[in-house]
Design a protein around this nucleic acid. Structure first.
Lengths: 274, 274
DNA sequence: CAAAATACGTAACATACGATACAGCGCTCC
DNA sequence: GGAGCGCTGTATCGTATGTTACGTATTTTG
């Protein structure tokens, strides 16, 4: 049963030649707006020629382009009249994907429910005050999150370092850390021994630790000044770091806002360096 | 302050002559669909003549009919991109949580709404079939996502490589790529020249490209076999990659499920290696 | 009540839009 | 490696669309 044109497309997109597939993808990307424009605009957006667009709609089973547009408009009309039914109710998608998404969304709500605005503001403030250096590090699967956060923070303020590579390398960086510095650690199950040892040593040197972990709390929590506990359970073989990722983005945004004045100047300076 | 065209109309409907008022009313009645149709259809629906419609849109301040339609489409685009689902479930979040989170949740729902189960299943199947090698690479801020995905995929199957470091390094890896291989690219605004060039060359070598991008589609979409367009807009100075992150996790889960038998054995082997 | 002004529709016009024919190119399959 | 097929873009064509001019109807005002 094919109800919407979007389904029709994703059903046949596999059998389409390259050019028409581009058309399909650009249409899906911001559905259904591109389809309401003229053939010329559609083709320009997709980077193909007009005839390809027409062949595309022909393959979908429409006699001509206006007929295709009418179908899109009808669909849009039905959709606008019942706005509530449009926002993804769990039953409509049905497939194996939906439970994963639902669980992830729940995780985020839960994570933020246990996270007060004040707590986030405090952490952001600590990251924004430029007394010392900021170091970031993560575990096997969470190190990309540390990288992601470092990439953003490094733009709006100086002295941001992501600790990468072999353990011996970042262990030696301990020598540079002191009580004015901040260490952001990502560590979820199964907690890594090496990270715990590293955190302990940093803690003894007076470094303030901000820990991103799961709801069962990494042993590093003992040494941490701030602990962010995210929900990670999803119906999959793996744990999900998505909630922690969103917290990280939220913090990045908050820090950016606090450093607005200084940060804006810094960004301009960076731009001029290219 | 007049924001939407609907407001503009209801603001001036009092000063309009009878015919144009009928036009206004029929447009408001099922807004904005009637305005997207042709002048002839609009006039028929309103029971007036074509020139009356044109005089109507002229009175609203538009130079010509196409300009009026474009304005309607822009409005519709903005509306579709940020669904007002906030009003739907204020209960679940419990009140004044950061607008950042709400926007992120919306982005995810929207992203998955434009993403069919079949599409995801196709991509997962392509990643699971072990004919060739799998390469992953990302842009300035999205490379951590590539890393994250690579870290997981590399555990359940062989020949998974994350392309890191300087451009010249991964450019040389092109020599190892062929038509049996898959290249996963993350690229959101502002799109990186180097990535586009790399994608183009890989494409010419017959490599199948799976692209993670934003709703405005990186130019790499021209070469991509599969395109995943995620929503990135959040109330922050930065774009959000969270939706793409969740799609990545979903794919990781799907691939893992498909490789369950082979993957489980591989994981056991890995365990015994420690 | 008359006269003017405004509003509206009919009909002709020009533009630009969608459709089609054709040629070049790349790809696949012997 | 060569022949065949299928896909894609360029150029051209017919037409539907938006636009305008003009005449008639309707309302408004002195």
């Amino acid at each position: 049963m094919i109800s919407s044109i979007a389904e029709l497309i994703s059903d046949r997109i596999g059998t389409m030649p390259a050019g028409e597939r581009r058309a399909a993808q650009t249409l899906i990307a911001n559905y259904p707006l591109t389809g309401l424009k003229t053939v010329a605009e559609f083709s320009a957006a997709a980077g193909v020629s007009s005839p390809t667009i027409l062949r595309f709609v022909a393959r979908l089973g429409f006699q001509n382009y206006p007929e295709f547009q009418s179908a899109l408009q009808d669909e849009l009309a039905a959709q606008l009249q019942s706005p509530a039914s449009r926002t993804l109710d769990p039953s409509s998608t049905g497939g194996a994907v939906s439970p994963m998404l639902e669980a992830t969304l729940d995780n985020m709500r839960e994570t933020f429910r246990h996270l007060s605005d004040k707590q986030l503001a405090d952490i952001a403030a600590r990251l924004a005050e430029r007394r010392g250096k900021t170091f970031l590090i993560g575990g096997r699967f969470t190190d990309p999150l540390a990288r992601y956060m470092a990439a953003h923070l490094a733009i709006i303020q100086p002295d941001v370092y992501h600790l990468a590579g072999q353990e011996s390398i970042w262990r030696d960086r301990l020598i540079d850390m002191g009580k004015r510095d901040v260490l952001v650690i990502f560590d979820i199950r199964r907690y890594q021994e090496s990270l715990v040892r590293f955190a302990e040593k940093a803690h003894h040197r007076g470094v303030q630790i901000i820990l991103f972990t799961d709801q069962w709390l990494s042993p590093i929590a003992r040494f941490a000044r701030h602990v962010i506990a995210g929900r990670t359970a999803v119906p999959s073989a793996w744990d999900s770091s998505a909630a922690l990722f969103v917290v990280a983005e939220t913090l990045i945004g908050a820090v950016t806002r606090q450093l607005e004045a200084a940060g804006a100047k810094r960004i301009r300076d960076l731009e001029s360096l290219r």
